[in-house]
Simulated assay, not measured.
Amino acid sequence: MGKKQLWMVIGVLILVNCLTIAFSLSKANTAGGTLGNDETVATIGKKSILRQDWLHELESRYGKDVLKEMVDQKVIEEMAAKYHINVSNQDVDREFRMLQSTTNSFTQQNSKDEKGWKEQIRSNLLLEELLTKDVKVPSSELERYYQENKELFDVPPAFHLSHIVLPTQEEADKAVQELNQGSDFSTLAMERSIEEFSANNGGDIGYISEGDERYPGQYIEVAKELKTGSYSMPVKVEEGYAIFKLDGKISGKKYSFADVREQIRRQIALEQMKSPASASTFWDDAKVEWFYGHKEN
Rank of each mutant, 00 (worst) to 15 (best):
Glu238Gly: 06
Leu246Pro: 08
Ala269Ile: 12
Gly217Thr: 06
Gly206Val: 11
Gly202Phe: 06
Asp204Gln: 11
Ile164His: 02
Phe197Trp: 07
Ser232Cys: 07
Tyr255Pro: 08
Gln169Gly: 03
Thr187Glu: 12
Glu171Phe: 02
Ser183Glu: 13
Pro234Asp: 07
Ile264Ser: 02
Glu239Tyr: 14
Lys245Asn: 09
Ser183Ala: 15
Gln263Tyr: 10
Lys254Ser: 00
Tyr219Leu: 07
Glu239Lys: 15
Asp247Val: 01
Gly252Leu: 01
His163Glu: 13
Ala175Ile: 01
Leu166Thr: 11
Asn201Leu: 15
Ile268Tyr: 08
Leu270Tyr: 10
Val235Ala: 14
Val260Cys: 05
Gln177Phe: 02
Ser209Trp: 13
Val260Ser: 10
Tyr241Arg: 12
Ile243Trp: 10
Leu226Cys: 13
Arg192Trp: 14
Leu226Arg: 05
Glu221Ser: 11
Gly229Cys: 13
Gln267Asn: 07
Gln177Met: 08
Gly182Tyr: 12
Asp204Ala: 08
Tyr231Ser: 01
Leu179Val: 05
Ala269Thr: 06
Arg192Phe: 12
Gly252Arg: 04
Tyr219Pro: 12
Ile264Gly: 01
Leu246Ala: 14
Lys253Ser: 05
Val260Leu: 02
Met190His: 12
Val176Tyr: 00
Val260Gln: 07
Leu166Pro: 09
Ala258Glu: 15
Glu221Trp: 02
Pro156Trp: 06
Ile208Phe: 00
Met190Gln: 15
Pro157Asn: 03
Lys245Ile: 03
Asp259Asn: 06
Ser183Phe: 05
Phe159Asp: 12
Pro167Asn: 10
Tyr255Leu: 06
Ser232Met: 11
Gln169Pro: 03
Ser232Trp: 10
Gly229Thr: 14
Asp259Tyr: 02
Ser193Lys: 00
Ala223Lys: 14
Val260Pro: 04
Lys174Glu: 10
His163Asp: 08
Gln267Ile: 11
Gln169Asp: 05
Lys174Gly: 05
Asp259Val: 01
Glu178Trp: 13
